[in-house]
Amino acid sequence: MFILPLDTIHEGSMKFLYIQLILMQVNSDKILKRVLFAASLVILLIAAAMVFSLFKGSLPSISRFGWGFLFSPEWDPTQGREHYGALLFIVGTLLTSVVALIIALPLAFFTSLFVAEYFRGTKIATIVSTLVDLLAGIPSIIYGLWGFYMLRPFIVTLGLSPQGFGVLTSALVLAIMVVPYATSLSNNTIMMVPNELKEAAYSLGATRLEVIRNVILPSARSGMTASYILAFGRAIGETLAVTMLIGNENIIPKGLCSTGNTMASVIANQFGEASGLQLSSLIEIGLLLFVMTTLINAAGKYIIKKIA
């Protein structure tokens, strides 16, 4: 840019230019603010339309079965005596997820302590936490394959079930899948416990275990709880790995080694060929899944917000 001597420009035109420049800026600012706001509406619309579409798609099923849908264990697509109930899928989903969480808990809990306390700040802790995070990156279908070809034969060898399918097999794979979700937030909350507090406990003669039990865990408890809740939410919505391992039998599981079916799996298995009332019932299961995961995640987020 070069500068003209002032007197070569007419004063009036100078002022005019300046005003125009300001106007341009004001306009651009306004436009950008509006664009940003409009974009924010998009996500709002998506969420609202999602709830609306799921609900609308479920209407035939809702008006036919009402609340009974939640409590009926029957899933019968036979023409003429069609009847759909979600109970066995709800039980299957909750059972696999709870068992998965129980298996994942010691893994996640101790791995968090390893990374955030025992070996905090060392190279080995970085390596371990990176490897654990990699678990979150592996696609669901690969977990399914691994479970099907590696874990399932092992379950058969142990004699736990003849085919190796079932709740336990799915839960074992789910557990590995949710460990990274359960650890990452736990690591952060453990690391946030102030060093001064730990030193105070050490100075009173506490061993490391006693410091962990009396100082670290009380401070980090709510954050760790939140991370396990979020991991549970993950497990509930997991589809493919479970579909490949649960056995897809429409029964309420009788035990850990029993086969069963989950909400996500029945959708994956039947959605393609379904129509009419069956399709609507599958969409209602999707709606239930949406509501369940949203409530669970909201609970986890609420706890996190309370700490922060």
């Binding site: 102030p194 009396n214 100082v215």
Partner: peptide, 27 residues
């Protein structure tokens, strides 16, 4: 015993429990 630069009472314990924390921690 030791007292530190910054006051560090245990925030998750009551005042009472803070005073007897040494006994509690040592079982």
């Amino acid at each position: 015993g030791m007292v530190f630069q910054r006051p560090n009472p245990f925030p998750t314990m009551s005042i009472y429990d803070n005073v007897i924390a040494g006994y509690k921690l040592n079982g």
